[in-house]
């Protein structure tokens, strides 16, 4: 993982990592934030570190400062010198790189027809490090009946929803035909169309495809038994999900939310809950652990 990630860092920053960051420390990194005229912030086990002139330090005000040139070089490396190839992702404010790490971008927004066309003069880059944790979903498979059900994985940002979903895909793929619509390339981390993460033997993947379009496409072409999606956020996606459920294919997806009340009251999800279309709700806490599981009647079963 380290070598793959360092490929995206310009020489100056890479050399700091090579000098001062051990492999063990690197393994636990959650985020690397690079901002113009500010020090690099490395989040490790929920603590912030930065590079002083000759060491790693927790005093983030004394760190070596990043220049605009460093940011531009990082962007070139992130996009493989081809930002045009990432325009759709940049419009959404992030790029997914090899191994499924998500890189958030902030800068000057360019609007066209009331939509974000692109971001230019990028001033902040945030590497969110994905960790493929095999068997993290293994203990919870027993809560999914056979044949499987419609499931939502719920949790706040950074709670490990995608990691859990990825492992669930891998495990279920042993017995079922699975199709994944991986709009942000975070589940399979496809590179040139080939998944870099292990998604099991019976998984087909549509990479970088909008979820609502991908679901219909997969339903018609790949005859899946289960469709898997990450981070539902649009009403159009919910409409496609309802179509999929009504056509007899099971669906598993993740959603940003704090708790059960949050999804009960939200316009996006209240219909799904009211119509009892979802069989199980898995809640993850910020410590990346399954906290609660509810059935379709919203009774707690774990």
């Amino acid at each position: 993982m380290r070598e793959n990630l360092e490929l995206y860092l310009p020489c100056e920053i890479k050399s700091l990592f090579q000098k001062f960051v051990s492999d063990d420390f690197f393994f636990d990194i959650q985020e690397i934030r690079i901002r113009v005229n500010n020090p690099i912030i490395i989040k490790n086990k929920n603590q912030n570190f930065t590079f002083a002139s000759n060491s790693l330090t927790k005093n983030i005000f004394s760190g070596i400062k990043i220049t605009k040139k460093n940011i531009d070089q990082t962007l070139e490396l992130l996009t493989n010198y081809s930002p045009y190839a990432f325009q759709n992702q940049i419009q959404n404010g992030f790029i997914t790189i090899q191994n499924g790490h998500r890189v958030g971008l902030a800068g000057e927004i360019i609007m066209q027809d009331n939509k974000i066309k692109t971001i230019r003069n990028i001033s902040s880059i945030n590497f969110r490090i994905a960790h493929e944790i095999k068997d993290c979903a293994k203990d919870f498979i027993k809560y999914i009946s056979n044949p499987p059900e419609n499931i939502i994985i719920i949790g706040p940002p950074g709670s490990g929803k995608t990691t859990f979903l990825r492992d669930l895909t891998r495990i279920l793929s042993r017995d079922y035909k699975i199709s994944v619509v991986d709009e942000r390339s975070e589940i399979g981390a496809c590179y040139l169309g080939v998944p870099q993460n292990d998604l099991g033997p019976q998984t087909d993947i549509l990479d970088k495809c909008p979820k609502n379009l991908g679901m219909d496409m997969l339903l018609k072409t790949m005859s899946p038994e289960i469709i898997i999606l990450d981070e539902i956020s649009e009403p159009a996606e919910i409409n496609s999900i309802i179509n999929i459920i009504n056509s007899g294919v099971k669906i598993i997806f993740s959603l940003h939310a704090k708790n059960l009340d949050d999804i009960k009251n939200r316009d996006l999800t209240k219909n799904l809950i009211a119509q009892k279309l979802i069989d199980k709700y898995f809640f993850l806490n910020p410590d990346n652990k399954i906290q609660d599981i509810y059935n379709k009647n919203l009774e707690k079963i774990f």
């Binding site: 996009t79 930002p83 045009y84």
Partner: peptide, 10 residues
Amino acid sequence: VITNLDQDLQ
């Protein structure tokens, strides 16, 4: 424009 963000411009 080789690394410009705008595909149309390139």
